[in-house]
Design a protein around this nucleic acid. Structure first.
Lengths: 266, 266
DNA sequence: CATGATTCCTTATGCTGTAAACTATCGGCT
DNA sequence: AGCCGATAGTTTACAGCATAAGGAATCATG
């Protein structure tokens, strides 16, 4: 299921996303009083997605954890889509909190740790990688996260469009590589086959099936001979380490480029 | 469904991926001769994914187009997963072709057009964005694409690890933003609501639900006032244009960073 | 000409989100 | 006090998914 924000009743889900914490305090409606709450449903769903993965998240599985049927959840949440939007914003809360309390004065260092927190966040909640960034979930916590970076970049002297672009590209760099890291981690957990074993088996098959590899791909072969695809730290899982290094390289390159763009807009 | 490459019989799918085009020419097996072929099944599936989207791709839908039942496809392909791997590599063929015939001498320009082709490719085949990069599909065409960039960056003087990292980050930048562009395009096609209308409605709702927005998010408000989120070219769909600009900004920043890293490895 | 491999079909299983109709509960009104 | 109607939660049902299992038709080879 691809999640587009706001497929259903937009006004309804926006109100839910932005509702103040003290809402639903006084209740004078007729009918049996609800035994669950939106928050409880969201937190339960979030826990399932975190621990068992997004494909284990179904209305039935959430209901089961709460001792309810799948259909009973629809009194709290209009659709699975809306539930996922609420989960997404809820999860972002912890990240926004941390970003706002960062006091690092240097913009480069501040941005680096901002991006690193985003990396860690996605490793903790890999299901967030499946949520579309087009027509995004317009919840308060992503705005808080955006604002916290915008403050830093604005002080550094970047123009509005540059801030927007930097934000977008930081998201791209993080999400692109962390997806590799997260899926590597998960694939290992699910299949039980460690990374290096998988790669070893694959390269053996590759040799068998493409004996002319070295002639067809001379530069890649050269790179391999020079150790570009070797695991230097034996203790860490290979792909995860490689993804992290790749990300760090890209982050530094991007931020250097951003530095030289300071003052060129407006 | 999340696609991990090589869940099934790895040897089998590798052989299928790397088979030479002239395979299956002579046939002397008993039993009714097959009326379809792996290639035909793959091309049909690819056409469905391109025109109707990945969620319209099912074994039933492919079978229907070919006048067969879903189950009959399993004589050509071991699983839906394997089918998708074959589709992915097949689609990459056109891209590898173009990349190999590019003669641009300047590495910066060559890399820019390499990345631009990757952008256009993903817009033409947005379903490729749903395929995991961890434990990747080890087909010949992605290697061709990698090699074509590696040749350029190797000549430019980058070290092996730098080449690998640059490749990975270019993929991140392209895939991150083009996903926004592709989903914006698709969401508009599916829902019929144009981008600007959607955003307009959303900001109205945002004002209603968060009247204190300007105080909570002063820098974002400032950016909006300075036109950071406005559509400058009225003819182009907004989000698509914004995604493209963001990508170009990130690409230039990254390549500038890469340039200054030349010669620092090995 | 029979054998056995191979293609393709039908049927069935266990998932998914959610529409529809129903029962049980309880606040506010007469 | 007692009823009305809104609300929470249930059961049942539907259309769709990948694919396991088993059977029928086809055809090169012994």
């Amino acid at each position: 299921m691809v999640i587009y924000a706001g497929q259903g009743d937009a006004a309804r889900s926006m109100a839910l996303l932005w509702r103040s914490p003290g809402d639903a305090s006084v209740r004078t409606a007729p009918g049996p009083r609800p035994e669950l709450s939106v928050d409880l449903v969201v937190r339960t769903a979030l826990d399932i997605a975190d621990t068992e993965g997004m494909e284990a998240l179904s209305m039935r599985s959430v209901g089961q954890r709460l001792g309810r049927t799948a259909m009973s959840l629809y009194t709290y949440v209009a659709s699975k889509n809306e539930l996922v939007e609420l989960m997404y914003d809820h999860a972002f809360g912890e990240l926004a909190e941390a970003a706002e309390s960062d006091q690092e004065p240097d913009w480069y260092a501040a941005t680096t740790s901002w991006a690193t927190r985003l990396w860690d966040f996605h490793l903790r909640h890999p299901w967030t990688l499946e949520i579309s960034q087009a027509r995004p979930v317009l919840g308060p916590n992503e705005y808080r996260l955006f604002e916290s970076l915008a403050v830093v970049l604005h002080r550094a002297g970047l123009g509005p469009t540059q801030i927007r672009s930097t934000y977008g590209n930081l998201f791209s760099l993080v999400r692109g590589q962390v997806r590799t890291a997260a899926e590597a981690r998960r694939a290992q957990a699910v299949t039980g086959v460690p990374e290096d074993e998988w790669w070893y088996e694959r390269s053996a098959q590759l040799e068998r099936v493409a004996p002319d590899f070295a002639e067809r791909f001379p530069v890649l072969t050269l790179m391999a001979d020079q150790g570009a695809f070797n695991n230097e730290n034996e203790d860490e899982p290979y792909l995860e380490q490689e993804a992290w290094e790749t990300f760090r390289f890209g982050l530094d390159a991007l931020l250097n480029g951003v530095r030289s763009a300071i003052g060129t807009e407006r």
